[in-house]
Amino acid sequence: MNIPWLKTGDKILIATVTVLAAVILIWNILGASPDPDVTAVITQDGRVIKQLDLLNLDEPEYLYLTGTVSQVIVAERGRIRFLESDCPNRTCVNSGWLTRAGDRAVCVPSRVVIKIVGKNPEMDTRAY
């Protein structure tokens, strides 16, 4: 074949995207607080429906959400996750445990977002 395997634009594209992704990733990591005191914020339609201080949980706390999608969120000391959901592709459940400030899990069908913020939420939301 006389056409080059990768053309100039291809190479520039691949390099640019890789660098861009790395920069944003580093920005996100630096933006996340190293503060071990973590609070989970659960929002639906952009409104906060529950806020949990994850380090002050002595036993697992379950949150049952009903509506068009029923789902169960479980919080334990230091971590939180979507446990069950009857949404179609269960991306939220597959996201697994959230442990660090900046972690988040999203369920689009129910429009629920769980995110973890440090003690000082202002600092963590700066990057978004």
Binding site: I14, V17, A21, I24, V113, A127, Y128
Partner: peptide, 23 residues
């Protein structure tokens, strides 16, 4: 679309992962 539906910006959080996976 996710940002519009969730009414919350999830752009920057997912951007690196989506850029690399798109690549």
């Amino acid at each position: 679309v996710a940002t519009i539906i969730l009414r919350e910006s999830v752009m920057l959080f997912y951007l690196p992962i989506l850029l690399v996976s798109a690549l």
